[in-house]
Design a protein around this nucleic acid. Structure first.
Length: 289
DNA sequence: AGTATCCCCTGAGCGC
DNA sequence: TGCGCTCAGGGGATAC
């Protein structure tokens, strides 16, 4: 469940299901799921056993759980879902999923947490918390910018930073060190709302239009969160395996050849960074106008 | 230093 | 049927 709304849906599910519980056995079923934990599976499981989940957090598309650690320094279990990762709360006797990569058991023998990930782009690490700009973050994501749902997100500063870049607007919106949480779906939706073409050079963008694009991204992600996120298929589900409904509200993403909701022109798809950009060729011109 | 491309993986859908 | 190709809500590691 990759973009901000989907990750937040997962975080909320984790919060209600594992906060206050203590980890016991952790089973790493696929090494790629912990490839970013440099010290390996033994260290990973050893550092988690006996730790209690005290909070769940998110920045952009990353989420983590803060673990009580007694006398030690504060620790976090950091997760990224990649393209196809799911975090599921399951009864211990539920059959293993085909792509089960990590199983987290708790000392109450209650429902377990499972990481299921078809493409293995997602994964975990146990990390130290550091303070960056007044906020505690796992050190591995110290470079990730605040996302638009962060109370301390600075829209003006982000607009200024965006306009200092020399790149295409959509690349900037996807740059997680500039603003985090926006992915391919919500970038396209935001650009459509702001009537901007994905390839608009950032240096030729007024502050007002940059602010509009950013506000549109914020709005569309907030709306998507309200609908439980975007799911086209069973890959994108909450911790209980349920899909969100925002796919019904998408104006352009995945809508190639369908009429634009504003002007009726057929939505187009263009190659973009080995993926796609969807846009309305009439509402979203390459040049200002 | 900042930006752009490559690459990691599995599976679904399509044309032939 | 099966093969080969394209495509998929990501980001890090390199290359320029």
């Amino acid at each position: 469940m990759p973009e901000l709304p989907e990750v937040e849906v997962v975080r909320l599910g984790l919060d209600g299901n594992i906060t206050g519980r203590t980890l016991s056995d952790v089973e790493v079923r696929h090494p790629r799921a912990i490839r970013r934990h440099i010290l390996g599976a033994g260290d990973f499981t050893g550092r988690l056993a006996g730790r209690k989940v005290v909070a769940t957090r998110r920045r952009g598309k990353y989420l983590w759980v803060e673990l009580s650690s007694g006398m030690d320094a504060d620790l976090a279990l950091l997760a990224h879902l990649g393209m196809s990762g799911q975090l599921l709360i399951q009864p211990p006797d539920a059959p293993d999923e085909k792509h089960l990569r990590v199983r987290f058991r708790f000392d109450d023998d209650g429902p377990e947490l499972r990481f299921v990930d078809q493409r293995t782009f997602g994964g975990f690490l146990v990390d130290d918390l550091v303070t960056v700009d007044g906020t505690a973050l796992p050190s591995a994501i110290a470079h990730i910018a605040r996302d638009p749902m962060d109370p301390r997100f600075d829209a003006r500063a982000t607009v200024a930073a965006l306009r200092r870049k020399k790149t295409e607007l959509k690349r900037a919106l996807l740059d997680q060190t500039l603003v985090s949480g926006i992915g391919n779906i919500y970038a396209d939706e935001a650009l459509w709302r702001a009537r901007l073409h994905w390839s608009r050079p950032t240096e030729r963008l007024s502050a007002a239009k940059a602010a509009e694009a950013l506000a549109a991204a914020t709005d569309v992600m907030r709306e998507a969160l309200g609908q439980g996120g975007t799911s086209f298929d069973a890959l994108y589900v909450n911790v209980n395996g349920q899909s969100g409904y925002f796919d019904r509200s998408l104006a352009v993403y995945g809508q190639e050849r369908l009429p634009c909701r504003r002007c009726g022109t057929a939505i187009r798809r263009e190659p973009f960074m080995n993926r796609s950009s969807y846009f309305c060729p009439r509402c979203q011109r390459r040049s200002p106008g």
